[in-house]
C-alpha cells in the first residue's frame, strides 16, 4: 500500500441484503473487509485474499463475485447479497437447507462462498446434472469435505427450489 492511499477517505453507499449502508472508507478498503468489519456481516469469509478460494464470494447484482478482489468503493450503488441475506437459522434458504441435509460442510469456513455461488448457479440452471453440479462448484476450495457432499447439496438445493416453487406437489424430501 502506498502513502497516497493513507488518510484519504471517501463516502460509499452500498446496498447489502436490501439495506443501504453508507460508510466513510479509504479507497483501498476491500469489499470483503467492508462487509465483514464495517458492516459486521462476518458470514462472508476470507480464505486467501487473492481471489482463488472463493470463500469471500458474494452476489453483486445477482452475480457471484469475489469480494476480496473488489474495493468497497467500486460497489457503490450496487446490490450485494451475502450469505446472511439468503436465509436465517429458522428459515434457511434452499441451498443452506441442502447443505444441512447433505452434510455439505464440516468446519463451515468455505460454506458461505459455496452457498452464494450455488444460489446463483441454480438460478441459471434449475435442474443440473451431477456433472454440471461438480463443474459449478469447481472454482471454490474446501479443505474439509472432499466435495462429494457439496455436489450432492447442489442437486438437492435445486430440488428444494423446485419443491418450494410448487408447494402443493412438494412431497417428502428424498
Amino acid at each position: 500500500m502506498t502513502d497516497i492511499d493513507q488518510g484519504t477517505t471517501v463516502d460509499v453507499t452500498v446496498t447489502v441484503n436490501g439495506i443501504a449502508h453508507t460508510r466513510t472508507v479509504e479507497p483501498r478498503r476491500l469489499l470483503s473487509d467492508f462487509i465483514r468489519h464495517d458492516l459486521r456481516l462476518t458470514g462472508t469469509h476470507v480464505g486467501c485474499e487473492h481471489g482463488v478460494c472463493g470463500a469471500c464470494t458474494v452476489l453483486v447484482d445477482g452475480k457471484p463475485m469475489r469480494s476480496c478482489l473488489m474495493f468497497a468503493v467500486s460497489a457503490e450503488d450496487m446490490e450485494i447479497t451475502t450469505v446472511e441475506g439468503l436465509g436465517t437459522q429458522d428459515a434457511m434458504g434452499p441451498v443452506q437447507q441442502a447443505f444441512v441435509e447433505c452434510h455439505g460442510l464440516q468446519c463451515g469456513f468455505c460454506t458461505p462462498g459455496f452457498v452464494t455461488t450455488i444460489t446463483a448457479f441454480i438460478e441459471e440452471n434449475p435442474d443440473p446434472t451431477s456433472e454440471e453440479a461438480r463443474e459449478a462448484i469447481s472454482g471454490n476450495l474446501c479443505r474439509c469435505t472432499g466435495y462429494q457432499n457439496i455436489c450432492k447439496a447442489v442437486l438437492r438445493a435445486a430440488e428444494i427450489n423446485r419443491e418450494r416453487a410448487t408447494p402443493t406437489e412438494g412431497g417428502d424430501p428424498a
Binding site: G43, V83, Q89, H103, G108, T111
Partner: peptide, 22 residues
C-alpha cells in the same frame, strides 16, 4: 443425525476468530 452446528454455520452465524474483537 443431521449436524446441530449447521444451521448456524450455513447462515453466516458462525463465529470464527476474525469475526471477533472488532
Amino acid at each position: 443425525v443431521l449436524r446441530r452446528e449447521d444451521p448456524r454455520l450455513v447462515t453466516g452465524n458462525g463465529r470464527y476468530l476474525d469475526d471477533l474483537g472488532h
